Computed example of a mutant assay.
Amino acid sequence: MDYQFELPIKVRDYETDSQGIVNNANYLHYLEITRHDFCEQAGTSFRAMQEQGLDPVVRKIEIEYISSLTLGDSMISKLRMHREGARFIFRQDIFNASTGAMVVRAVVTTVCLENGRLSRGDILAEAFAQYL
């Protein structure tokens, strides 16, 4: 898959359980951090969107855990986005930086609220025009 964005992330000690394995919920954080940094690369931020009355919200997440990261590991979190009607679909994968092994495969579906109401997301699409 051709990715539009990549972000290196290092596992921190508080993200692991007593065996030193990353807790499954932390992968959702990694995916979100990646989407936020991607927005900044695209020239916007969640704060800027909110000031315009736009609130992108997660509608659904499908996640497949393939292998584990452990304390001290580094990862590369990658994404590619596209639009399906009012939905913005982020295909996100996380790889172990040292081995290249896939760790997580996810599909994150978001929608856009404009001033609190569900919209087609056309204003948001303008911000991501170069990626859609």
Rank of each mutant, 00 (worst) to 15 (best):
R80N: 11
D2G: 15
R91Q: 13
L69W: 09
M81D: 02
G85R: 10
V103C: 00
R35S: 03
R87Q: 13
R47D: 14
T70S: 11
A48V: 08
G43E: 05
D13P: 15
T110H: 05
P8E: 04
Q50Y: 10
G53S: 01
R80M: 07
L31E: 10
V107F: 04
Y14H: 06
A86Y: 14
S68Y: 07
L69A: 03
R59G: 10
I76R: 15
L54Q: 02
I9P: 02
N23W: 15
D73T: 05
D93K: 04
S98K: 15
S45W: 01
D55N: 15
V108I: 10
E114G: 04
Q19Y: 15
E15D: 09
E6T: 14
S45C: 01
V107W: 08
Q41S: 10
Y30F: 13
R120K: 14
I89F: 10
A125G: 07
G72F: 06
S98C: 09
L132F: 03
C39A: 15
G43H: 04
I76E: 07
L118K: 06
L79Y: 00
I123H: 05
F95T: 03
M75G: 07
I89M: 05
D17M: 08
A125W: 06
V104T: 02
C39H: 10
V11R: 08
V58Q: 00
I33W: 04
I76Q: 09
L69D: 00
G72Q: 05
H82I: 08
M75P: 03
I89T: 07
S74N: 06
A127H: 15
I61Q: 09
I89V: 13
D37P: 10
V57P: 12
S119G: 09
N26G: 08
A106W: 06
Q52K: 13
G121M: 07
S67G: 03
I63Y: 01
G53Y: 03
R117E: 14
T16C: 10
E62K: 11
P56I: 03
A42N: 06
S74R: 14
S98P: 01
T99R: 05
F46I: 12
L7W: 06
V22L: 03
T70G: 08
Q92C: 03
N96F: 12
R83A: 14
G121W: 02
S77D: 04
G121A: 07
H82G: 14
C39N: 14
E114Y: 13
N23C: 11
N115H: 12
E51F: 14
T109N: 08
T44R: 06
E114V: 12
S45D: 01
P8S: 04
G100L: 05
H29S: 15
Y27C: 03
G43T: 12
S98F: 10
H36Q: 14
P8Y: 04
